[in-house]
Design a protein around this nucleic acid. Structure first.
Length: 144
DNA sequence: GCCAACGTTGGC
DNA sequence: GCCAACGTTGGC
């Protein structure tokens, strides 16, 4: 089981939106990612892997947990390349639970144990990896 | 294949 | 609104 962190701008797609879809039994296709490092991370995801949902720009905080319900498949919003090959892929996710206390970026940055978190080190990467230790600590900080 | 120019992301 | 970081593009 691996852990991840995925970003979204809440005015485009928020954790509330994801929870609403999950309640309706609709998986969310995490499409629109156009970055190779992020795509490779999604390819590495397994069924049941869990990920933090991070709100970028507005809030700048980890607001909930979701899980992978379908492994990487072609992104239906993406075009094929010149050779007709699929370039962009995505996974499907469902909400698990919100964080009782969202963990802000400022708090993460103020925590020495989280100084290696990819969210901090690779701030522009929209799908990043979280270590077991980082996951456990962030859950604790979030009131879980 | 290198590198400068440019565009985008995201924090502040 | 600005700027830093980084990815992509295009000329050579």
């Amino acid at each position: 089981m691996a852990y991840w962190l995925m970003k979204s701008e809440p005015d485009v797609f928020s954790f509330d939106d994801l929870q609403a879809k999950t309640t309706r039994n609709e998986p969310e296709e995490w499409g629109g990612v156009r970055n190779y490092a992020a795509r490779n991370n999604m390819r590495a995801m397994a069924l049941g892997d869990e990920a933090f949902f991070y709100h970028s720009n507005i809030g700048k905080e980890i607001v909930g947990i979701m899980k992978v319900v379908a492994t990487a498949h072609p992104d239906s919003t993406a075009d094929l390349n010149a050779k007709g090959k699929v370039v962009w892929e995505c996974v499907d996710v469902a909400a698990v639970k919100p964080m009782p206390k969202p963990v802000t970026l400022a708090t993460v940055k103020a925590t020495p144990e989280l100084s290696e978190l990819e969210l901090v080190k690779l701030s522009r990467l929209s799908v990043s990896k979280v270590s077991d230790a980082e996951w456990a600590l962030l859950c604790k900080m979030g009131g879980l």
